[in-house]
Design a protein around this nucleic acid. Structure first.
Length: 512
RNA sequence: CAGCUCGUAGCUUAGUUGGUUAGAGCACCAGUCUUUUAAACUGGGGGUCGAAGGUUCGAUUCCUUCUGGGCCGACCA
């Protein structure tokens, strides 16, 4: 069977054999990289006024990205610069000139070269390097899918097949500069968050990815096995219970960027492994956490996008604090016209039916309210909005509300109609926590496969005493989607999960 | 997992109401050109039209199945 994903066509490797890399091992591309001013100048300034840089000797290295007449493009991590490689213009001795001419002839798009030369401006005003010396640094044996752009910004022959782009992200990154920008922005966002947290003396920690009991959330875990201990282990679905143990241990503010794994469906907002930022702060409640979230997101928007008014699709989202707050029951009332706050299970079921929401017998009061919110209200919250005070049944790790019966002190932050963060005043009463876990056990016995496992060691930790604490989890991938204006999680993950390529060998394995 | 949709050269694609050797641009190869700017000029190589089966005198085109994507649901608090 033909393998579509074999990549670019393989070329003859004459250049690779003709110009051995070992000959050029002394080429030092780092020299030019030290001159940061020059970098900026070369890549940002066009045209007149070369000033002190005119005829300045420089040394650059990067990918050869095509030639037209005597002009070639050199692409490095900073961008693209034009090279002037007029015939017979480089090399001092006749021998050198011959060697250069031969090299130029053998160059293919994608090859790595080093150049030495001087900065000058061409007739049309483009800053270029007049090449005096050319060095061969690395061969590209496969043809890159070269993308063309004209002055108006029109793109031709774009490398855009999502399957090929995700499977061969290395190619995507070389030929689609916007893709690289998206990932740089994601890193900027993460750096901004770290800066915010570190600025408040929060402690970044690492907790186990392999867990004997996959706790802290309700989700299907990936299961694996440890050979020496001969026990099953699970990839973490959340790190919540470990961070709370650290609060018990005496840290006041801990955080972790946690790669979580959930063995569930994949779509444009779900990948089997994804990143969540969780942080826990002692002696705080969920009101404090709302204020902190507002401050953090306002800063992150400024650092990442340079403004608090962020364009997402056809909407402008304002990250200017404070954000709107509304209780989940009021939200349902607002978007369904029905006040469900005093209703029992049967009445709620009737309301769901009225709005054509599918329900089943296993759903309790809390789940029904959650369904109503999800179906009727959630997508309306485009601007950042805290949905607060959830039913207790849905939140086995959350402290009961200080004044409202049957509710807990919890909020979810909705942005652009999606959940971005989930936070609680954490449950620190070990007796209550044990009862809640037992409720979950009953649910599990009734066949609810989403119910949480009981973690006895976590309960023991609580029994040693945990201060009042507020905690929050942010979906970092979804945040990155917002700040980079992407509608698919695959666009903010370097290597999104894909079905493996089917090779001849795999096919044979299947038969056996 | 359901519905819809797509798969033609390394990339981007044209095309066939079923009919001779499936066209093009870029890329690649051989030359020409050398201050250009998505795409200079001439010539060349490269495709079992995603795979298998069926209908047919004849299938890249129609049908079925499979396979890998995409969209939209379901699921995932």
């Amino acid at each position: 069977m033909k393998n579509k994903f074999n990549g670019g066509k393989l070329l003859a490797d004459e250049a690779a054999t003709e110009f051995k890399l070992s000959e050029n091992i002394e080429f030092d591309a780092g020299v030019s990289r030290e001159a940061t001013d020059l970098n900026t100048f070369l890549h940002d300034i066009k045209g007149e006024g070369l000033g002190e840089y005119n005829e300045k000797a420089v040394q650059l290295a990067g990918r050869f990205m095509g030639q037209r007449g005597p002009f070639a493009k050199l692409q490095d991590s900073e961008g693209v610069i034009q090279l002037f490689m007029g015939k017979g213009k480089y090399g001092e001795t006749e021998e050198e000139q011959e060697r250069h001419a031969k090299l130029v002839k053998l160059l293919d798009i994608g090859d790595f070269i080093g150049v030495k030369g001087e900065v000058f401006s061409t007739g049309t005003g483009e800053v270029s390097i007049r090449v005096n010396e050319l060095t061969f640094l690395g061969k590209s044996l496969r043809t890159l899918p070269i993308v063309k752009r004209d002055k108006e910004g029109n793109v031709y022959d774009e490398f855009k097949d999502p399957e090929l782009r995700y499977r061969m992200r290395y190619v995507d990154l070389v030929v689609n500069p916007k893709v690289k920008d998206t990932f740089l922005k994601r890193t900027k966002m993460v750096n901004s968050i770290r800066e915010f947290l570190n600025g408040h003396d929060a402690i970044e920690v690492d907790t186990p990815v392999l867990q004997p009991i996959p706790g802290g959330a309700a989700a299907r875990p990936f299961k694996t096995h440890h050979n020496s201990l001969d026990i099953p282990l699970y990839m973490r679905i959340a790190n919540e219970l470990y961070l709370k143990r650290l609060i018990v241990g005496g840290f006041d503010w801990v955080y972790e960027f946690s790669r979580n794994f959930r063995n569930e469906g994949m779509d444009r907002t779900h990948n089997p492994e994804f990143t969540v930022l969780e942080f826990y702060v002692a002696y705080k409640d969920y009101f404090w956490m709302m204020e902190t979230t507002e401050k953090m997101l306002e800063k992150v928007a400024m650092d990442t996008c340079g403004t608090t008014e962020v364009q997402v699709g056809d909407k402008t989202i304002s990250f200017k604090a404070p954000f709107k707050r509304i209780s989940i029951l009021d939200a349902i009332k607002e978007h369904s016209g029905t006040d469900v706050s005093e209703m029992g299970e049967d009445e709620l079921r009737a309301v769901c039916k009225k709005h054509h929401i599918e329900v089943d017998k296993s759903m309790g009061k809390g789940k029904l309210i959650d369904e109503l919110f999800g179906e009727l209200a959630e997508h309306h919250y485009i601007q950042p909005t805290f949905i607060i005070d959830y039913p207790v049944e849905m939140s086995p790790l959350t402290k009961k509300h200080r004044s409202k019966e049957g509710l807990v002190e919890r909020f979810e932050l909705m942005i652009n109609g999606k959940e971005i963060a989930n936070a609680y005043s954490e449950l620190n009463d070990p007796i209550d926590q044990r009862e809640r876990f037992e409720e979950q056990m009953k649910l599990m016995e009734r066949g609810d496969d989403e119910a949480m496992f009981i973690d006895q060691d976590f309960l023991r930790a609580l029994e040693y005493g945990m201060p009042p604490t507020s905690g929050i989890g942010f979906g970092i991938d979804r945040m990155a989607m917002l700040f980079t204006n992407q509608s698919s999680i695959q666009e903010v993950l370097f290597f999104p999960q894909m079905r493996p390529e089917k090779s001849e060998k795999n096919k044979v394995d299947e038969v056996e």
